[in-house]
Amino acid sequence: MRESESWTIAYSAILSFVCAASLTVVSSVAKPHFEANKERERKGLTLRALGIPIPAGKTIEEVYAESVKTGKEEGIFEYWKDGRLQSVAFDEDGQGLWGVIVAYVALEPDLAHVRSIAVYRQEETPGLGAEIATDEFRRRFAGKRLVDDAGALILRVAKAGSAAPDEVDGISGATLTGEGVNQILAKVAERARALRRARGEGGGADSPSPRG
């Protein structure tokens, strides 16, 4: 009886159903947590890119809610503290060697100097291109000037060991990954230029009025 055709079909159907049902149950229970985790990660990265400290005793969500305002356009995040704009972060992507690199680039309120970057998605080679996600690489950007007074891009990731003083040293063996980061910098410079025009500024900035 065990080997009969009808039992085989019936057994398969029952077992598939039981498995699918248990998985659906587990999945629907897990999904909200999963989504919350993804969101928390995104917020944490935004905070890190903007240079917002997370004091002990506060959660990422709380700090995010009180300090970060989203700009009028998508992908712009502003860090406000005590009524003054502290930094603006742009969410942009570039093409790396193996896949898309997505990063936040946070600028000072003058929209000319880089405060920090935070790479949050990349598929580069571990130990080589993937080093762009490390703190050490991030630190190379602090304080560098992104654009000149006319708004043209001057910052770039140079080939390792050959960076000029106003450039960022790349990772040896990961030149193409560096080019991907450069694409991101170019896009950010473009958006920064557009933002400054929208604010009606020429060069240098003071805190504009809050928005978002």
């Binding site: 077992l15 498995c19 229970v29 897990a30 947590h33 999963f34 985790n37 993804k38």
Partner: peptide, 23 residues
């Protein structure tokens, strides 16, 4: 059948991991 049962347990573990230990 063996593969099906194995896969079910793997997916359950994967879902738990994603929900509680995301990084």
């Amino acid at each position: 059948v063996e593969v099906l049962l194995i896969a079910t347990f793997v997916i359950i573990f994967d879902q738990i991991l994603k929900a509680r230990f995301y990084d």
